[in-house]
Amino acid sequence: MTTPINILLIEDNLGDAKLTAKALSRAKIENTLYVVDDGMKAMDFFYQRGEYKDAPRPDLVLLDLNLPKKDGREILQEIKADPSLLKIPVLILSTSQSMEDVDTSYRLHANSYIKKPVDFPGFMEVIRSIDSYWMGVVRLPAMG
């Protein structure tokens, strides 16, 4: 019995957040999903500030690019600029197909760029592959 891994989903669309949660709940690996709906809250979560004083350190981050207050690109840049956070794998999960967004994300050291499929079966498939790849195949760095 391993300790469940902590996943932070930064997503302003509650529908998507719920879908993601739904999909992850069917995942094989035990996980705890935390959801924040704007960039400022995300940063508070990382630095365990305010209401996220007791928040755990996430093992995997699922980041939407278009967010209120502070968008996904800034969050990515800040995480990867902070030595204490840069080891955390960040997967971009976006509806955008634009090559520019893909390029920008990888330049800012995103670990993966995933386009949200438009249909639910496809979406479930993607979450399932994240589950098997990032939580099964890949060895994640040690925390701390």
Binding site: N13, G15, D16, L19, K22, T95, K116, V118, D119, F120, P121, F123
Partner: peptide, 14 residues
């Protein structure tokens, strides 16, 4: 339109 439609499609499917 894709964004809201995705919600409709996904949740009706769900």
């Amino acid at each position: 339109l894709q964004e809201p439609l995705r919600m409709i499609a996904s949740y009706t499917w769900l």
